[in-house]
Amino acid sequence: MILTIFCWLALILFFGLSLWKAKQFASLPMHGRQDLYPIPLESSEKHAYGGSYMEEDRWFEKEHKHNNVAMVIDMLGEMLFIKKLFVNQNKFWWISYALHLGIYAALAWTVLLFVGAFAGMESAFGSIVYVLVTIAGVVAGVLMTLGTIGLIVKRLTVLEFKNYTTPQEMFNLFFLLAVAVTGLLTFLLNGCNFTYGYAITYAMTRFQALSEVCAGSLYPVANTGILYLHIILLGLVMIYIPLCKMSHYVGKYFTFHNVIWDNRPNLPGSKVEATIIKESSIAPAPGKNWSAPHYQPAPAPTDEAK
């Protein structure tokens, strides 16, 4: 039962901590403008060459429409393909993309397993799900393994990466590798199928002890040792990710949406103006402001000067 509880805990903590992280960034004061073009929110004609509403005479009197479709397309390009890396550093894109695609496949695998926990394997729908689970699972295991190994080798051998990589960053890669390898081993040592995955989500959704499900006849798992090790590593990595910089899926939302694409002008009556007014009271406590001489209030005139 402990493992079932741990699985739920890991899942809840993953989402909970990611949201907490997002809330931390969202609660910081509004920053000064950092627009950086091209911005997909501009009209498609302008977006094509990086133009903005500021290319218009008297822009402040004109309506500034947002092109949300282009924004979503751009965002998806970044999320699904890491477009900027592909365009600007083609050589290493494949390695990084393998890892990321592997993680996306692992997420799909998890979702499918929850569907499978209710659909079973027998019905037509259930068997389609099973096929998809198998594809997603194999792709996830193989790509994550190759991707992490590729990144580890790159960071150990190429000086320009080695010099900037911290032990923690290497640890993160090894951690992901361990999860991927134990997953693949569990698959291989249990008849090359993902019954074990079904056992996990079945136990979770029925709130049963995983050991009982594995010992039962519905989703039998023979080699539970490697399975338990995999579950513990997977659960730990899910809790760890939002706490370290692997939570860049949260950061990336802010850096794009909230920073380089935020070109909303401070017009009278605008939301930006309202925020400025609301946040105008945020100021350093006495003694906590910058201390260069020009930051000090001008001295009161001395008697002599008066």
């Binding site: 960034f25 910081l28 004061p29 509004m30 920053h31 000064g32 950092q34 950061g251 802010f254 850096t255 909230n258 920073v259 946040e279 945020i282 100021a283 350093p284 406590a285 906590k288 402001n289 910058w290």
Partner: peptide, 13 residues
């Protein structure tokens, strides 16, 4: 957050 409020969000990221 107070002494550097105009950029702290971007900087933290």
């Amino acid at each position: 957050n107070e002494a550097n409020k105009g950029i702290i969000q971007c900087l933290n990221l």
